[in-house]
Design a protein around this nucleic acid. Sequence first.
DNA 1: CTGAAAGCGCTTACAG
DNA 2: CTGAAAGCGCTTACAG
Lengths: 361, 361
Amino acid sequence: MVTMKDVAREAGVSQAAVSYAYGRPDRLSAGIRRQIMAAADRLGYPGPNIVGSSLRSGGRTGAVGVMLMDTLQYAFKDASTRSLLEGIVRHGRLDERCLTLIPLSSEGGPEGSKPQSITHPGLRGLVDGAIVHSLPDNHPALMTLRALDTPMVVVDAPELPGVPFVGIRDREAAAQQLSHVLDLGHTRIAIIVERLKPDGRKGFAGRARWVNSVERVVRERIGGYETACEAHGVDFDRVSIIEVGAFDPDSARSAAGRLIDDEAPTAIVATSDAMALGVLAAAAERQLSVPDDLSVIGFDDAPEAAAAGLTTIRQPMVEKGEIAASILLTLLAGGEAAGETILPTELIVRNTTGPPPPHGT
Amino acid sequence: MVTMKDVAREAGVSQAAVSYAYGRPDRLSAGIRRQIMAAADRLGYPGPNIVGSSLRSGGRTGAVGVMLMDTLQYAFKDASTRSLLEGIVRHGRLDERCLTLIPLSSEGGPEGSKPQSITHPGLRGLVDGAIVHSLPDNHPALMTLRALDTPMVVVDAPELPGVPFVGIRDREAAAQQLSHVLDLGHTRIAIIVERLKPDGRKGFAGRARWVNSVERVVRERIGGYETACEAHGVDFDRVSIIEVGAFDPDSARSAAGRLIDDEAPTAIVATSDAMALGVLAAAAERQLSVPDDLSVIGFDDAPEAAAAGLTTIRQPMVEKGEIAASILLTLLAGGEAAGETILPTELIVRNTTGPPPPHGT
DNA sequence: CTGAAAGCGCTTACAG
DNA sequence: CTGAAAGCGCTTACAG
């Protein structure tokens, strides 16, 4: 590998002079500087090695991290995560940096790592700052980022004192979502949710499970559902919650099938469009007509939702990413950042919700 | 920031012992090791700082780079790039690492960087290896990666001696694409291409421009078109090539409009599905019926192609990514890698191609 | 089985 | 305006 020492020898100057040529050009005469740059070009020297310079000068690597739950494969499948990334990269200044995707297991180490105390390389000084997306409360990575003094901004979850937050009013948006079907007259309602805890469990879930969920978003959302039911005089204990244990429509389809077969709800409320799409598939398998036999409402307004004519709650994921990136870069530039940015949501009524069937099926 | 020295003090051992606890556990008694790990836990120490360890031990950072042309924003918009990334992350072992996206301008530096000789941070020792996607021949980043001895694998372009390559037979696939419309009887054919050179030019392009293109894929593809025309006795000089200068369907729409208005071709051959979708939009604007008035064929078989009923050439982008990731990880593990992996392509006939109109419009 | 010391590539006070 | 030297956090021969 070609280093500053090589360039210095080639240019006939000291190694420090080469460093100045890149970092403090004013300290060198223009002639010397040109001579050094010419030597660097001849040798194919790409500029100061980031690892060396970062170590010396307190850790700026030029990389910005995005901390994602689960595997990268999942992240790229998930519409919300994709939109978030799309928004993050809209911030053009990121093109001068590296965007480092860091998939975090629930323990914070690399998937399948042996020693408990070793964490993901992404948590060991490789990034200058981090955008954290939907991590469980108290995820070990959060403590690590704190211990490393890594500037960060959180999108959606968790809420951390002193850390800029970008999100929506999950509780109110969920209440609005459920109210839509309540207003249409539904009373036999079920909820389908991706997961309440990252422990692989699936199937019907009781109150204790969501109340104690470590995932802020789902806890708030279901809290909102409860509020909406109470406001409409519907007993929330009679509203089933089924947990899919995964994030893709296919898994949702089988869970939704079970829900339909067991409980024959007239409306199913999903915590994402992916889940709602699974419900639609399950309904189609059973020759149920939507919305005549079954109403379905999603959440996100992902690109697929419009094509499917899905009624949903729109949340601005792309904007979340864009704002998070902008806050993080402000932080990295030494600026002050807004403590909390709450974006608006909106009910989008399309073709999958309507009044319940006359006799309740 | 908490360092090894802090952990050593906390555990009452030397700093070297802490290093051994992580890197050479066999050199320590189990008791001492446990004592050190406990101290690390108490302090929130995430394991050896990557920057320090990388500097000392010859540069392994745990990050894998993906070198992308243009901005990240564009990369996330482009269906091929998205599929490539999707494939890359299928290789689950990447979840133990960081996936670092590195957007390269045509000069190799950060967008808008001043000093000519300073290159993107991603090219200065931050990644252990790189997947290079569709870079122009002789892009400076390639020389840099060589100078840094960074293991790499190239997807699509350029072809580099001694560097593993993953791609398709672009020339043959393009010939098959054009032959499809020739076989249908078209003779008034035009070609719409994203860009021949990254110099911002757009509009009709002459032979010299594509023959000398520094982009391997487009050079091969158009070479294939020429071969197909010759084989069918069609004079390739009478086939117009229009350059969009961008990669999105919207830009393609206006270029295609110009093409249709000026030349009234009966078939338009596009080098990507995104371009073909733009052609479809331009045809719709002009009330042209596809394929009755105009045949359109794309390339890629991107997810949008099926929905649009687009006839196209399928190329396995996801597999390219998966294979490239697997080759790179093999290289990083010190293994041998295949020199060249050529994946199959396939003509997918849908609803946008048919015989030319009886009187040639 | 453990510790002291050198050095990876760099930046930056400090001295000339 | 330029150079010699210290030290960032770590690993690894080497000595005890």
